[in-house]
Each structure stands twice: as structure tokens, then as C-alpha cells.
Computed example of a mutant assay.
Amino acid sequence: MSDTILVTGASGHLGGGIIRHLLDDEGVAPGRIIAVTRDVGKLTDFSDRGVSVRAGDFRDGDGLARAFAGADKVLVISGADIGQRLAQHEAAIKAAVAAGAKRIAYTSMPNPEPGNAVVFAPEHFGTEQAIKATGLPYTIFRNGWYQENLLMSLPQALSSGKWYSAAGQGRVAHAARDDMAAAIAAALASNEGESTTYTLTGPEALTTDEIAARAASTLGKPIEVIHVSDEQLAQGMKAAGVPAEYVPMLVSFDTNTRNGGIDIVTGDLETLSGRKPRPLEDFLTANRAALLG
């Protein structure tokens, strides 16, 4: 196969990881990879290896059309501008179609259909629908929560000994971001046929209490989980100095977890990458310094 693979968001953790796995694990020739980012100066490591590096911005449709030229497979990694992402993703999809892409791929989230409590779920669902409306074959990667997301909450919990959560007994199967990158790279490098949706998760779904117990056991510091309401969690975040614009989004994660919206466990990650997902304990050990401060 000689399809050209284009990856947006190539300077980000996920995009960069996917390109590294394409090169190092999947044996994709550098000349078959197009890395698109807002700031090409951040991708000299890839350009030095022979990857085609191009400037592209989801907010600039005409620029995207030029950046996507010659791409057979286009991976649209979801953008960071919450509230504006659907329009931006639609611009990327339009550019992929205009470039003559044979397949469009996208990084979505589990269960983004209406009813999901996460504030940005409609943007993911809308993007999936826009991709399907093109009539092109597609690959949708519904990425679960990263283990790295725990770096937002666990350090404070370990420091204070208290973890305030509105997730109740809801479960999350966190997975390492690099494991997801490896799985996505493997799918992009394969001879994909029919349209497919994968849900990428870790190997087991755990409650906040179970995550706290494992963190305490691995790191040697006890954590008491204090279960609160959404309103109490929001008030606590504001009191702690979390910017007001981020509070509804962060609370919605717990609401969705409590509602069972992200308790999925699949084998898709291992099936695609051929490797066992990293256990939570390995993440905790590897990030001991960052978690304990």
C-alpha cells in the first residue's frame, strides 16, 4: 500500500505520538506522511526525518485545502477550541473532500450521541455525522479518557488526602495516550476496507474510590474520596481558583461518569496495536514525581 497519510494536530501529544508510531512501529515511509500543524517550527524532528510538514489551521479553510493536497487518508484530530470545534472540523472535512481523500478518520469520544452529559459531546457527534455525510469510507476512533487526565485531579488529592468527586460509583477505563496513539497508527497503516468505528479504552473500568485506593497503595499516601453533588463540586472548583469557564466542562466529566456514559471496556486498542494496554499502576509509578509534587 502506498496511500499518503495526513495527520492534523501533529505537534500535539496524540498527533506526534501517532506519527512516531507510523514511522517506528508500522514502517511507513516518511514520504508517505503529511504532518499538519499551526506552527511548523515545532515539527523539525519530523521534517528532518523526511516527513512532509505543512502549516494548517482549522480556522482557515482555504489554507487547509492547500495543506491537505495529495492526502489519501486524512486523520482529523479533534481541536482544542471547545464551542467552535464543530465548525472547524467541518472545514477540515470539506478540505479533505476537496483534496480527493479516499478515507477520513477522526478522534471522537465514547457515546457522543445525544444524552451524553459532557459539554463537548455534541461537537464530536456532529463531526461524526458530517464525516458520514460525505459518503467516503471513514474510521472513527472513540478515544476514552487518558490516564494522563488524572494528572489534573490526583496531585491535589494526594497532597490534601481528599478527593472531591461527583462521579458516584460510575466507572472509567482510563488508557495511556501513547497506547491509543499506537492503535490509531496501526489502523491508519493498514489496508482498511469498510467504514469502521473503534472505541479505545483501558483494560478495566474503575470507580473513583478504586482509583484512589490503587493510587494510595502504589504511592504510599492515603486518599479519602468525598462524594459531592455537581453543584458542590462546581462551588469547590470555583473556590479553589479554577477559571469559571472551565468549571461546567470539568463537572460534566463527573456527571457523565456517574451516568455510566464512559464505563465501556473494549479490546479494540489491543486488537489494533497488538500490545497490552498499560495498567493504571504502571502510570502511577512512572508519574510518581508529578503526582506527589
Rank of each mutant, 00 (worst) to 15 (best):
Leu22Pro: 00
Ser190Tyr: 14
Ala117His: 14
Leu284Gly: 00
Phe283Leu: 05
Tyr146Ser: 07
Thr197Lys: 06
Arg278Trp: 08
Ala121Tyr: 09
Gln232Asn: 10
Ala212Gly: 01
Thr207Lys: 04
Ile264Trp: 07
Ile131Asp: 03
Val7Gly: 00
Leu188Lys: 06
Thr44Trp: 05
Pro277Thr: 15
Ala187Leu: 08
Leu280Cys: 02
Gln156Tyr: 10
Ala185Leu: 02
Ser11Gly: 14
Phe141Val: 07
Leu280Glu: 04
Met180Glu: 11
Met249Thr: 15
Ser52Asp: 15
Lys102Asp: 07
Gly220Ser: 11
Ala101Asp: 01
Tyr198Gly: 01
Thr8Ala: 02
Gly79Pro: 01
Ala91Pro: 04
Leu14Pro: 01
Ala99Thr: 10
Gln129Cys: 13
Thr196Gly: 02
Arg103Trp: 04
Thr197Val: 15
Gly236Gln: 11
Gly50His: 11
Ile262Met: 14
Ala290Met: 14
Thr271Ile: 08
His13Lys: 13
Gly50Pro: 05
Ser159Asp: 13
Ser195Leu: 05
Ala65Asp: 11
Ala175Thr: 14
Asp39His: 15
Arg54Asp: 03
Gly61Val: 14
Glu224Pro: 00
Arg275Glu: 10
Ala92Asp: 01
Ser273Asn: 11
Arg20Cys: 05
Gly115Glu: 10
Ala213Tyr: 05
Gly261Thr: 12
Ala189Met: 04
Asn111Met: 13
Leu284Cys: 04
Glu210Asn: 07
Val247Pro: 02
Ser190Met: 10
Glu204Leu: 11
Ile104Arg: 00
Gly115Asp: 11
Asp25Val: 13
Ala205Pro: 12
Ile131Gln: 00
Val228Phe: 08
Gly27Cys: 06
Thr107Gly: 02
Ile33Gln: 00
Thr201Lys: 05
Thr4Asn: 01
Met249Leu: 13
His13Phe: 13
Pro155Met: 04
Leu14Glu: 01
Ile19Phe: 07
Ile140Asp: 01
Gly27His: 07
Val225Glu: 03
Thr271His: 09
Gly126Gln: 06
Ile262Arg: 11
Ala286Leu: 07
Arg85Glu: 09
Leu150Trp: 05
Asp230Met: 09
Ala69Asn: 04
Tyr164Phe: 12
Ala157Thr: 11
Lys276Cys: 07
Ala71Leu: 02
Tyr198His: 08
Lys94Asn: 15
Val76Phe: 11
Arg171Ala: 12
Pro112His: 01
Gly100Thr: 02
Val251Tyr: 10
